[in-house]
Nucleic acid binder design. Structure first.
Length: 854
RNA sequence: GCCCCCGUAGCCCAACGGCAGAGGCAGAGGUCUUAAAAACCUUGCAGUGUGGGUUCGAGUCCCACCGGGGGCACCA
């Protein structure tokens, strides 16, 4: 990466020989490596970033998504932290009391897999990595408050994860059920829906299969509507696309439940008994097409299918099920897949017209969405139409949209049109009234009602792995499922390592007999501990609350502490957590709100997603060989240059292509800025008001704009403004007011403070050379003199027909009438107006006049 | 298929509906030097993906299309 022409990060100090001292001071580059070593201990001693939390200043909570401790920091971490730190350090400079905590999401699979390979305890690997990362963060100069540090794998932390789990369980929000679940054959554990991407395990990429298991769930579906509604508070403060993704994921659909009677033995003759009937409920978003239903479809893998199946069709259903089960999600995902299914040999009675419809089982209907059964309206639903055509089932159009008849065209029509063949709906022309009327009728008849359905499923939280938070429940033969009493928490992990951790399809914990076999807290009899652990997303769903009360021993957090700091003012992290982590954290917050433990419903006021660091157009990866090693880049250019490069590369949310940026250029700029500090020839504390006014204007405007730019999170533009100020100051020194002018000191001090948000080492070096005590990080934001923001004169542009024809130097306070008069009197303008009639003059004082004269 | 975001100079990117260019990278020229490097100075080549529209005025607002990225997807 480093180019031949890039300046070296390290310059030998001993080259500054006495003879050329002046020359050297002006030209030399400062020693980046030495500066990094020099300031760390100073900062650690000063401890400038510990939240005071004494109410003397307004509080700000700067939160960054805590890291997972696999290996050392990489470019991704470097980017988030650099961006995040701009905000945190800005708040410090503005005089807020800032809480900027750090911790580790330290349970999880990678550590466990690594431990198995090395035949050691996952904790050994995990905590070693944490130390490495912590050291890197310190070197990287992030303004963390280390006193609040936490690790989710510490018993002191997960005790409260367990405690929260028990509270959720008491409220019916954590429950166990037996059902088919996503199973990763590679990691040998179940996965949440959210962890299955395109039919693959999100983590390892293995093809996900299904298994029937008893598993713990959080009832996040109870909160679906609130998760949706409360997004209103986030509008404009969270990235639109994250909100869109969450909305998408929650997947609200309005529609209706319709009850069909299914006759279980249709056509049986020679008996006087009425047919046994079973009511089957379907969910539809288009109840208005009920007259167009020509068959019913039940999810083949739903219990319902075998329950309603006619005896003589049972064999066919079993055979079909066999086939379906062999399919993976991958098969199911492939589009244009031919429809398959089997006739169940029974009929359903359409509640609005008494028609008997055949009932089929198929895999295009999902068992776990809606009721697992649908009414099929082939004319107006493409999937149903494909199915009808595959099996020769009838198609009946009930909305005439003016398009081709679906029966012939093979294309279902879904738009508005005139209702036909639909009883009293006939003649209506819009969907809303059709839907309204049919729901009204169904409700009157007791055959259905308007309802809402969500795509969101409950959150499967059990994992059959070792390195996670144990589920604090015991299973007793006589008492059943019993919660571990609070005073016996935490349920600590046993000391397993190496081969004992190998995935066997059941949790490794189940094999730790001494641990598993316990006493029932209720009856004292023999019982077994639940041997599953929790999804690590449970750990991370509340860590931001724990930061407010680090080390608290009698609760997960103190509601008073949380009230002072939360909701977090800004949350910075990758968009890869747009759904999972953020949805779960929002869910936890709402539950805690209902428990009276927090007084807000949304945990993160503002969300900032940073882009990814890629290289040559592609994500960095070992196989592509395009990885960029953070440590090496820092060794080459220094921490500040790397941070500056990442902040300056573009808007925070955009991806950064490492091939497009220039850390060498960043270093060069930092050296330029640093050299300014050696040129300042006035003493600290000199009164700047007597200084060069032109330079002072630039300084004050830059400081003013920088604040606005940080607050609107346009950090790249802020850096550009600092560069401008550096360039202007350079010129002032070399060919303007000269180094003794107090305005130069004012400018350079401003540069140091502004730079402290991005390049703390360089800023500190500058501050020291300017004759100040450390630390520049707490120097305070420069006071802006408002009067210097107002220019003496501004350039007004005069346009004729939208084209610039003249420029006028006018006072900023000029009136519209004066400006118009001056503009029309300008010789150039007069020339362009010759022979034309002025129809209209638009004046935007003091900047612009546009003369309309066609 | 549905939904969302983005197209400005060779490149990364700025630009309250008002002079298309702030900053950087790369390039060119120069100062210094025996020479080179470093440092410093000078230098802007596109009319904003395409076509319409609104407006006195559009990179910016609206519509359509093209291109790129992302999310969801047999969710009834």
């Amino acid at each position: 990466m480093p180019r031949r022409s890039d300046p070296p990060a390290t310059k030998r100090r001993d080259r500054e020989t006495a003879g050329d001292m002046d020359e050297q001071r002006e030209r030399a580059a400062y020693d980046v490596v030495a500066a990094q070593e020099k300031w760390r201990p100073v900062w650690e001693k000063l401890n400038p970033f510990q939240a005071a939390d004494d109410g003397s200043k307004e509080r700000r909570y700067a939160l960054t998504m805590f890291p997972y401790p696999s290996g050392d920091l990489h470019m991704g971490h470097a980017e988030v932290m650099a961006l995040h730190d701009v905000v945190a350090r800005y708040w410090w400079q503005r005089g807020y009391d800032v809480m900027n905590p750090i911790g580790w999401d330290s349970f999880g699979l990678p550590a466990e897999n690594a431990a198995i390979k090395r035949d050691e305890h996952p904790a050994t690997y995990t905590y070693a990595n944490i130390e490495t990362q912590a050291e890197s963060f310190r070197r990287y100069g992030i303004s963390f408050d280390w006193s609040r540090r936490l690790h989710t794998s510490d018993p002191e932390y997960y005790q409260w994860t367990q405690w929260l789990f028990l509270r959720f369980r008491e409220r019916g929000l954590a429950y166990r059920k037996h059902s088919p679940v996503n199973w990763c054959p590679n990691d040998q554990t179940v996965l949440a829906n959210e962890q299955v991407v395109q039919g693959m395990c999100e983590r390892c990429g293995a093809e996900v299969t299904k298994r029937e298991l008893s598993q713990w769930y959080f009832k996040v579906t109870d909160y679906a509507q609130r998760l949706l509604d409360d997004m209103e508070q986030l509008e404009g403060r969270w990235p639109e696309r994250v909100l869109a993704m969450q909305r998408n994921w929650i997947g609200r659909s309005e529609g209706a439940h319709v009850d069909f009677d299914v006759k279980l033995h249709p056509g049986t003759d020679g008996t006087t008994e009425p047919d046994p009937v079973r009511t089957v409920r379907v969910f539809t978003t288009r109840p208005d097409t009920l007259y167009g239903a020509t068959f019913m479809v039940v999810a083949a893998d739903a219990k319902l299918a075998s329950e309603v199946c006619a005896p003589d069709r049972r064999e066919a259903l079993e055979a079909y099920l066999e086939e379906v089960r062999k399919e993976t999600d991958i098969d199911r995902l492939s589009t244009e897949r031919p429809k398959t299914g089997v006739d169940l040999g029974v009929v359903a009675v359409n509640p609005v017209n008494g028609e008997e419809l055949p009932v089929w089982a198929a895999d295009y209907v999902l068992a776990d969405y809606g009721t697992g059964a649908i009414m099929a309206v082939p004319a107006h639903d493409q999937r149903d139409l494909d199915f009808a055509r595959a099996f020769g089932l009838p198609v009946r159009r009930v909305i005439d949209t003016g398009e081709d008849n679906p029966e012939e065209s093979g294309v279902a029509t879904t738009g508005d049109g005139v209702y036909v063949n639909s009883g009293d709906l006939d003649g209506l022309t819009d969907k809303e009234s059709g839907i309204g009327r049919i729901i009204e009728r169904l409700e009157t008849d007791g055959r259905g009602k308007g309802t809402v359905n969500f795509r969101l499923r409950d959150w499967l939280l059990s994992r059959q792995r070792f390195w996670g938070c144990p589920i604090p429940v015991v299973h007793c033969d006589s008492c059943g499922e019993v919660a571990v009493p609070d005073d016996q928490l935490p349920v600590e992990l046993p000391d397993l390592r190496g081969v004992d951790l190998k995935p066997k399809g059941v949790s490794p914990l189940a094999a730790a007999e001494e641990w598993v076999n316990t006493e029932c807290p209720q009856c004292g009899g023999p019982a077994k501990r639940d041997s599953d652990t929790m999804d690590t997303f449970v750990d991370s769903s509340w860590y931001f609350l724990r930061y407010c009360s680090p080390g608290l021993t009698d609760g997960p957090f103190d509601p008073e502490d949380v009230r002072r700091w939360m909701p977090a003012h800004i949350y910075v992290g990758g968009v890869e957590h747009a759904i999972l982590h953020l949805l779960y954290s929002r869910f936890f917050t709402k539950v805690l709100h209902d428990m009276g433990m927090v007084d807000f419903v949304e945990p993160f006021s503002t969300l900032m997603n940073q882009g990814q660091v890629i290289n040559r157009g592609k994500a960095m990866s070992k196989s592509l060989g395009n990885g960029v090693n953070l440590g090496e880049v820092i060794d080459e250019y220094g921490v500040d240059a790397v941070r500056l490069t990442l902040v300056f590369a573009g808007p925070p949310e955009d991806d950064i292509d490492w091939a497009d940026v220039s850390p060498g250029g960043s270093l060069k700029f930092l050296q330029r800025a640093w050299r300014l500090s050696g040129d300042v020839a006035s003493a600290p504390g000199v009164d700047p008001t007597a200084g060069d006014e032109a330079l002072r204007r630039v300084t004050h405007r830059t400081v003013h704009e920088a604040a606005e730019l940080v607050e609107s999170r346009r950090f790249n533009v802020m850096v550009a403004r600092i560069m401008e100020l550096v360039n202007t100051t350079r010129k002032a020194i070399d060919s303007g007011c000269g180094p003794e002018d107090p305005a130069v000191r004012e400018a350079v001090e401003a540069v140091a403070i502004l730079l402290s948000l991005v390049a703390p080492y360089t800023a500190e070096e500058m501050w020291e050379r300017l004759g100040h005590q450390p630390t520049v990080a707490r120097a305070g934001w420069p006071q802006v003199d408002e009067s210097l923001l107002v220019e003496d004169t501004v350039t007004a542009v005069v346009q004729v027909q939208g084209k610039v024809r003249a420029r006028l130097e006018v006072p900023p306070s000029i009136s519209a009438a004066d400006l118009e008069q001056q503009a029309l009197a300008d010789p150039a303008v007069v020339r362009f107006l010759e022979g034309k009639t002025v129809r209209k003059v638009i004046v935007r004082e003091p900047n612009l006049v546009n003369v309309v004269a066609p």
